[in-house]
Amino acid sequence: MRGETLVGPTARLGWFIAITALYLLHQDIWLWRQPRPLVFGFLPPALAYHGGYCIAVALLMWGLTRFAWPSHLEQREDR
């Protein structure tokens, strides 16, 4: 579907980098063998990290819906 996005090429590159970076951050090898320190006194670091990761994904998705939303898909239908 050509011309899908209203986002310019620079912004598109920016979003691509942001998504790729977040994908790579899922592979947190620096925490691989660390059971300490416990976050909030009871959460193992890997669990806390990936919990935070989910929140980071929600923020990324908020940014995408706010600044890169393909609203033309709906407008096309409304016409």
């Binding site: 977040l22 947190d28 890997a46 990936h50 990761y53 994904v57």
Partner: peptide, 14 residues
């Protein structure tokens, strides 16, 4: 152990 969350939950969340 805790690996379950990264394997199945946060990967799906992304």
């Amino acid at each position: 152990g805790v690996v379950t969350f990264g394997l199945m939950a946060s990967s799906s969340a992304f």
